[in-house]
Design a protein around this nucleic acid. Sequence first.
DNA 1: AAAAGTGTACTATGGATATAATACACTTAG
DNA 2: CTAAGTGTATTATATCCATAGTACACTTTT
Lengths: 128, 128
Amino acid sequence: MVEFATLRLEDGVPIYLQIIRHVKAGIAAGTVVDGEELPSRRALSALLGVNPNTIQKAFRLLEEEGWLQSHTGAKSLISATAKQVETLRKNLPDYQARAFVRSMKALGATCADTVALVETLWKEEESE
Amino acid sequence: MVEFATLRLEDGVPIYLQIIRHVKAGIAAGTVVDGEELPSRRALSALLGVNPNTIQKAFRLLEEEGWLQSHTGAKSLISATAKQVETLRKNLPDYQARAFVRSMKALGATCADTVALVETLWKEEESE
DNA sequence: AAAAGTGTACTATGGATATAATACACTTAG
DNA sequence: CTAAGTGTATTATATCCATAGTACACTTTT
């Protein structure tokens, strides 16, 4: 069962996009695998405290992109071929790191400062 | 005059927030200083290709937060005390780095991999 | 003084996001 | 088999984001 208990919704970003990102991140990290069950729309809606339609929108888009399969009446399942996972694992970190580097440069930070900051925060967040 | 020519608008984030972020980043980086002139609402609207009302919203919020001063009929000016700048320079990089570390952990990356990726991309983007 | 530029305010419209409330067909568990 | 659970669809409403057009008072430039 794909876990959503750790997902903390932040505002400023559409909820349905955060749900999509959470699923893709799980697949890229290897904690979510092909064939795995997803919680029902209603159950996830209750867990996150959002409208069922919002969950449905996220799941519908994920299905259109080929990341899950749905059959009326039955639970939805993750669908991720080895090739899909490989592409995701390459592109996701790269995309996020690029955006981060750009924003740190805009702040006038140096490469060394940035790396040091990342290392410090990485250890900080390990103890939580 | 505060520069906006380098600002590339991305979708998924409200335009007025990107403008606010751009100004704050400039102040934190030291390229935008107290008393500096901002382009007029209409001029910036034309430069970025967005509605004047959107620019006005960004500037109004910046003024409410104390980052600029406006007087009807005259150009708006940056307002940034040393204390304000100091706080910004500390908090902005920290906030962005925290979000980055969290997202890389969600992807299952290690600290070493992440640092290596940042260093690689940092040099790549220098040649552009 | 006159003209151009500037900040500000207002109404109206459309799209995206999210919620709310139903409804129905299908699958699964009892 | 029956009931509960599930995917799916629909309509309605509210808010935010962005655009469009207009208007007016003030400042700066000419």
